[in-house]
């Protein structure tokens, strides 16, 4: 250990710290993929949504006819809305724990800021937005935009009505909890400080317990 001078220690610490940062970065990268790992039903729906933003499965056809599906798709295309409509029957056994989770999986797989209406009938429908985004409730007419359609009724009527009342750019980015890059870096330093301080105290206690000074300094020469 004698060859470990300050510079060597600093270089080694930077290497270890960089390695830890890369591990955390990779874990964060993969966390959404793990959380939103989708099964075949969701993946098939995503493929169907990519074409025209509307997908109706065979089991959901009774809730939205083909002609109505085309009309909704045309409306979305006409207004160039980041909205998607998925119509299917609720299932407990399709590879997700809850139907809202299936909507989140769809949004994650779409990979772009989007607004998804998951229509499963009056009891189990939902509208979800890509994490980090929210629906802009402010309309040009001064009224509040509805963030989701009412699910009690005919999807062929309710969904177009709701799409029409959305503002031109219905999605707005939410504020970053940590305030973006600078805030995140500051928060990281803030959280790291007590950890390093605590470790320094622990090392000091170990040094004292082994008859050394609390600080990492040689013992003072005794008065002789």
């Amino acid at each position: 250990m004698k060859g470990l001078n300050r510079i060597t220690c600093a270089v080694a610490a930077v290497v270890l710290g960089t390695g830890a940062a890369l591990v955390v970065d990779a874990r964060l990268d993969s966390s959404a993929d793990r959380e939103y790992a989708a099964g075949d039903r969701v993946l098939a729906a995503v493929e169907g949504l990519r074409d025209d933003h509307v997908h109706v499965t065979d089991d959901g056809r009774g809730m939205l006819a083909e002609a109505d599906e085309r009309a909704i798709a045309e409306l979305i295309a006409e207004r160039d809305l980041p909205a998607y409509v998925l119509v299917w029957k609720n299932s407990w056994f399709a590879g997700y724990d809850h139907y809202v989770q299936s909507a989140e999986q769809v949004l994650h797989q779409l990979g772009e800021p989007a607004l998804l209406v998951l229509w499963q009938g009056p009891e189990n429908s939902t509208t979800q937005v890509t994490p980090g985004w929210t629906v802009d409730r402010w309309t040009e007419g001064g009224g509040d935009a509805e963030v989701e359609p009412t699910y009690l009724g005919d999807a062929a009527l309710r969904i177009p009505e709701w799409l029409e009342q959305l503002p031109e750019d219905p999605l707005v980015a939410q504020d970053d909890y940590y305030g973006g890059l600078g805030g995140g870096l500051a928060a990281g330093a803030f959280f790291a400080a007590p950890i390093v301080l605590g470790f320094w105290l622990l090392l000091g206690v170990v040094r004292v317990a082994t008859s050394r000074r609390f600080r990492n300094r040689p013992l003072r020469a005794p008065d002789r």
Binding site: A10, A12, G17, A21, A32, G183, F199
Partner: peptide, 28 residues
């Protein structure tokens, strides 16, 4: 879902905490 701030916080925390502790340990 992690945001840009989450990435910055997480990586800064890991770098400073691990790097700082490693430096103190190695110097000791």
């Amino acid at each position: 879902v992690p945001t840009q701030g989450t990435y910055a916080m997480g990586t800064a925390l890991a770098f400073l905490a691990v790097g700082g502790c490693a430096y103190l340990l190695l110097r000791t």
